[in-house]
Amino acid sequence: MTLLDSSLPGFPDAAPLAGLAGGVLIGLAAALMLLGVGRIAGVSGIAARAFGLASGSQPRLGAWAFIIGLPLGALIVTSLTAASTPAFANPVTLAMAGVIVGVGTRIGSGCTSGHGVCGMSRLSQRSLVATATFMATGFATVAAMNALGIAVLP
């Protein structure tokens, strides 16, 4: 992973090549879903379908298979690399953020994968607007939390 550890001038913490490599894999995964079974690889929608929280034409078994694949893929990568475990927010913060993400993605019909990756690449107007919106409120939220001195990660 030495090449993937390369950095970007001016941004010593960034991992542009690892990011690009990961992004290409995500794009291939979404392409497989689209060209293979004719569906959007939108995680929030597929999760809702798997857990019986959304109706739709997608077979629930297929939705489950996709969701189970996500940690499986992560497990394969972490078992092959010696990366340290990242830090996560405390349980209360995680629960609060989780509820907001669950409500928001259902009302907004998608998340970073469905709108961000699949929709933007299709130049879907709805997805372009959705992505611009969640990016904007994401930037504003981190800026506001920093201004208020609220740190969620150690």
Binding site: V43, F88, A89, T93, L94, M96, A97, G98, V99, I100, V101, G102, V103, G104, T105, R106, I107, G108, S109, G110, C111, T112, S113, H115, V129, A130, T131, T133, F134, M135, A136, T137, G138, F139, A140, T141, V142, M145, V152, L153
Partner: peptide
């Protein structure tokens, strides 16, 4: 919905 999602995404850094 997207605005709400962005807020939750930013709070914990997870989507």
């Amino acid at each position: 919905g997207s605005a709400l999602f962005g807020i939750g995404w930013a709070i914990a850094g997870l989507c």
